[in-house]
Simulated scan of single mutants.
Amino acid sequence: MASIPESEGRLMQPARTVLRHRWPLRLMHWINLACMLALVGSGLQIFNAHPALYWGEASHFDTPLLAMESVRGADGKGQGVTRLGNATYDTTGLFGVSANAEGRNVRRGFPEWATIPGPRSLALGRRWHFFFAWAWVINGICYLAWSLASRHLRDDLAMRRRDWREVPRSVLDHLRFRHPQGSEALRYNPLQKLAYLGVIFVLTPLVLLTGLSMSPQLDSVMSGFIALVGGRQSARTLHFVAMSLFVLFTLVHVLMVVYAGPINEMRSMITGRFRVRGEQGGAAHAE
């Protein structure tokens, strides 16, 4: 009687469909995405009113940390220039000078397609920003309440000893574009957990505190935090950095969805159903 080696005898089981995401999580995920898109677009609209960042309490116009400007080039036409510290970059067509809806180059920080609502409206930008900020906060509170009640935060996102040990391997898997198969694809890997926890407990509080600290009505309430970060302009800069990290997180998230299988991943976030493939069964034996 002979047996087939386990490495050869393990059989691929038929694909199966499981419920991966429950409906409250799916609903809050899409509400969060809509709010984030509106917040980024309206935030850039507000930023365009003065497209520069500083550190400290006051705006020192000669030495900004970041500035998007328009200068007259050698040909007499407007040229977009972005200053980052002491470095200067020609960003015509994207930052400083970009085409409007009619195709004409105009002076503006971020291009028209990246801002809402409308091409130039600071007042409307602020209204949109505040409205969707409150919607985002309410949605976030609902997410935290549901995550605690359903044990999603503890069971799915909490880092355990095993996760910390697997961080190096997870980094290598991402660098090699290796995606988990079978039942492993149903759980969050260590890098996913760290990214989600960082967004929930670091980036979100930072963007909320810096956003609130820019409001003159909250001077007395936020004075301690404003002093801690070095001034209102510092808070504005940190708010911009936090927004940029949110955008970066979203782009990486979308890239990972495309890499892992966009149809399957999107179906799981719309219907909740996820198709598990590549799962191995027990070893087969032959006599």
Rank of each mutant, 00 (worst) to 15 (best):
D75Q: 08
L218Q: 05
M159E: 10
T237K: 01
R161S: 12
A286P: 06
M256T: 09
P119T: 15
P216Y: 02
L19H: 09
L19G: 11
R273G: 08
I4K: 09
C142Q: 10
F177G: 07
C142M: 13
V207I: 15
R72G: 08
G73Y: 07
S59D: 12
W55S: 06
L203Y: 02
F240N: 04
Q13K: 14
Q45R: 10
S98V: 00
V106T: 12
V229Q: 00
S215D: 14
A135Y: 08
S220C: 09
F274P: 05
P111Q: 01
R236K: 15
A2S: 14
S220P: 10
Q181S: 15
L37S: 04
I116A: 10
R16A: 05
L209T: 03
L153C: 08
R176I: 11
L228N: 02
F249L: 09
H174V: 11
R126D: 07
R104K: 15
S150M: 07
Q79T: 13
R20D: 00
M266C: 14
R162K: 14
R187F: 12
G9N: 05
A52Q: 09
F130Y: 14
E265Q: 14
A145G: 07
M36Y: 07
G43R: 04
V40M: 10
R161F: 12
F130D: 10
A242V: 02
T210M: 01
P64A: 00
R10F: 05
P117F: 08
L148S: 08
G109E: 01
I270A: 08
R160K: 15
T82G: 03
R160P: 08
G43F: 00
M266N: 12
P64F: 00
R16E: 13
E57G: 02
S244E: 01
S98D: 01
F274C: 05
E6P: 04
G96F: 03
A87N: 12
L203P: 02
Y196E: 08
Q181M: 15
L245Y: 00
A227L: 07
R104F: 10
H239S: 04
P111I: 01
L148H: 09
L194P: 06
F274E: 04
W136C: 15
M269R: 08
M36C: 11
L172M: 15
G73Q: 06
W146C: 07
R236G: 09
V18Q: 06
V229G: 02
M68V: 01
A235R: 02
A101K: 11
D156H: 15
L84M: 09
R154Y: 08
V81S: 05
Q192I: 00
E8V: 12
C142I: 12
I31N: 05
I4M: 08
L255V: 10
S121D: 14
W128P: 00
L194K: 05
T115H: 06
T115F: 03
T250V: 13
N86Y: 00
L124R: 11
L191I: 12
V254T: 00
R178D: 14
L218P: 07
R83Q: 09
V202L: 14
L144A: 10
L37D: 03
F201R: 00
G85L: 03
R162V: 15
E69K: 10
W164Q: 03
M68I: 01
E265P: 08
V258W: 12
M256E: 12
A227F: 07
V171G: 12
R72A: 13
H239I: 02
G211V: 04
P111N: 01
